[in-house]
Simulated scan of single mutants.
Amino acid sequence: MEVWPAIDIRGGRCVRLCQGDFNRETVYGEDPVEMARHWQRLGAMRLHIVDLDGARTGNPTNFPVIIKIVQATGLVCQVGGGLRQTEAVAELLGAGVARVVIGTRAIKDPQWFRELCRRFPGQIVLGLDARDGLVATDGWLETTRESAVEVAQRFQDEPIAAIVYTDIASDGMLKGVNVAAMAALQRSVSVPVIASGGITTLEDIRALKAAGLAGCILGRALYEQRFSLSEALEAAGEREATEGGSVSANSAR
């Protein structure tokens, strides 16, 4: 199972939110580029990057720092947050981003999303954020009446790279992952599903792997040293554990 350390950018800084609440923010670093290098030094092979400002406004604002991360690390980078225009998607992919995550506009404009997938096959990820099983949009500010499974099945025949499924109730809370919901979605589609939200322990990672998930995104638990990146990679089966690998207060800031 793939491990994706998360870098969430707001106001040019590396932060994490609790349940997507912009009033419940923790700053983990002033320099997202250095944070990316940090995870790379500890063995990260890929990064999940979110433009939180863009997710909230629908207008991506952190492209310069995101492109710097890609250029500085050369890692496989998956980027989301406010990507609702074809031009913005093309700009990121042209700058070396491996794939982009589309959420809100995929829900609101399915034909545009289908055309985007066909223009950039294997480089588009469907982002499904769910509250009580129902898909939320616009930076989690609005909740639809459609289930994550219904939306996923609608698009599974398109050439998408993966589905990132976030359980909003669990996100940033360090209270455990909703394995049942993640596994149910993965069983319902043939597309690889990447789990996001609430991963707190190594056992959570092992449970997701056992449930057949294709990947997991690690945020607050990794930043707050609940486990090291090496331990996470081992639990996911990506590599054997090595000495060290936890975040130190100095290196993470």
Results as ranks from 00 to 15, higher is better:
D204T: 02
A207M: 04
G139V: 01
A184E: 15
D138S: 14
G197F: 03
T143S: 11
T86H: 09
E142C: 09
L208H: 11
R154A: 13
P121K: 02
I168D: 13
P192F: 01
L92I: 07
I107S: 03
E146W: 13
Q156R: 12
T86Y: 04
R131D: 15
A136W: 05
V79C: 06
V135I: 13
D171W: 06
A169N: 13
A183N: 14
L93I: 04
T104Q: 10
S147H: 08
D132L: 14
G103A: 15
P110F: 02
P159S: 03
I160R: 11
V125C: 14
R154W: 12
L208G: 10
T104Y: 07
V79G: 05
R99Y: 02
V135Y: 03
R114G: 15
D138K: 15
S188V: 06
D204M: 02
Q111H: 15
Q123W: 04
S188L: 08
L75S: 02
R154K: 15
E150C: 07
V164Y: 03
S170H: 14
E142P: 02
T144A: 12
A95R: 09
S190V: 08
R206L: 07
V191R: 00
E203S: 10
E142T: 12
D109K: 10
F113Y: 09
Q85R: 15
D109I: 01
R206E: 14
G103I: 10
A90I: 00
R206D: 07
L174C: 09
G81T: 02
S188K: 05
E91V: 02
L126Y: 07
L93P: 06
T166L: 06
R84T: 14
E142F: 04
V151Q: 15
T144K: 10
L83G: 01
T143A: 12
D132S: 15
L202V: 10
T166C: 04
L83K: 09
